[in-house]
């Protein structure tokens, strides 16, 4: 493969590790998260010379992947195709109960709340940037964060810890 492919490898290696956990929360499902992310990276690869020259290629992939996570209907093809070529992934042990619970709790948030939670808490985007990326006002984002938090505290029975903060 030519030189851009080498850049892509590096980018993919670093960014996929960073983005996958966020997508797990955004979709509530590991496989869905992988689908979204693979799809986003495949799209980036298709126009890699342009994407790599972006100020923030990871933001490009993140945005596409998050859009896919919200849309929820444009996935699977990449994974299926790659699985055909590479074979299925190796079986993995089951995750811990706490991890499952928290992902499940986040999945119960509205998609709007989930987006802001993931972008702000998982990917460390400031509220202003979350607002800009999602086309919402900062106040709206703040409100959604507060409500999401309250809901998660309730779902995860964290009221005592929350009061102690």
């Amino acid at each position: 493969m030519d030189r851009p492919a080498l850049d892509f490898d590096e980018f993919y290696g670093v960014s996929s590790r960073r983005l996958l956990p966020a997508l797990v929360l955004a979709t509530g499902d590991l496989q869905d998260a992988q689908d979204c992310l693979q799809e986003a990276f495949a799209r980036a690869a298709a126009r890699w010379r342009t994407v790599r020259s972006c100020d923030n290629p990871e933001a490009w992939v993140r945005r596409v992947a998050m859009n896919l996570a919200v849309d929820g209907h444009r996935r699977r093809r990449v994974r299926r195709r790659i699985a055909e070529q590479e074979g299925p992934p190796a079986p993995a042990p089951a995750p811990g109960e706490a991890a499952v619970d928290v992902v499940r709790a986040v999945a119960q948030l509205s998609s709007e709340q989930r987006q802001v939670v993931v972008l702000h808490h998982l990917l460390d985007l400031p509220v202003a940037e979350v607002a800009r990326e999602l086309g919402r006002s900062e106040n709206t984002v703040k409100t959604q964060l507060v409500r999401a938090r309250a809901r998660l505290v309730d779902l995860l029975s964290l009221a005592e810890q929350e009061q102690a903060r």
Binding site: L20, P21, Q38, P89
Partner: peptide, 15 residues
């Protein structure tokens, strides 16, 4: 949330 998401993510390798 971070720990949970990371743990789940660690159970599936990207291609």
């Amino acid at each position: 949330m971070r720990d949970g998401a990371r743990e789940i993510a660690s159970h599936g390798a990207m291609p």
